[in-house]
């Protein structure tokens, strides 16, 4: 594979960039994400995390049974603001709507 091969196609992160991160001592998935931007695009790491994990294991930088993906963030898949807004009273309408009971807050 050449250094120009893409590991993260959403954010155009190449193998060469991963190599540079590793060269700077960054060998965890969380660190490499934050150094290169890998996994921050539309797929949110669904496509690239496995490839990065494999690379770290192959190079002896991580143990397969100890590797964790980076923190999964909501929403589970991209969802429009219009849909989310519909779950709420209109902003310009009579506020203040009732806030949920703290016990119901996730």
């Amino acid at each position: 594979m050449t250094a120009r091969a893409f590991l993260c196609r959403c954010e155009d992160v190449t193998l060469g960039e991963i190599d540079r991160a590793i060269d700077r001592g960054l060998t965890t998935i969380e660190e490499i994400k934050r150094y290169t931007g890998l996994g921050t695009g539309p797929c949110q790491g669904k496509e690239c995390t496995g490839a990065l994990a494999r690379l770290l294991v192959d190079r002896g930088l991580a143990r397969a049974d100890a590797l964790q993906p980076f923190t999964a963030r909501p929403p589970a898949e991209p969802i429009t603001l219009g849909l989310l807004a519909a779950a709420r009273a209109p902003f310009f309408a009579a506020r203040p709507e009732e806030d949920p009971d703290p016990k119901d807050t996730p």
Partner: peptide
């Protein structure tokens, strides 16, 4: 989810073209 619905209601009111915009991560 309270954050996401609150901000979605405010943002789509102040900038209506964002109604079709997708949230990637919070």
């Amino acid at each position: 989810l309270r954050f996401l619905t609150t901000i979605a209601a405010t943002l789509t009111a102040l900038m209506p073209i964002t109604a079709g915009l997708k949230v990637l991560r919070q």
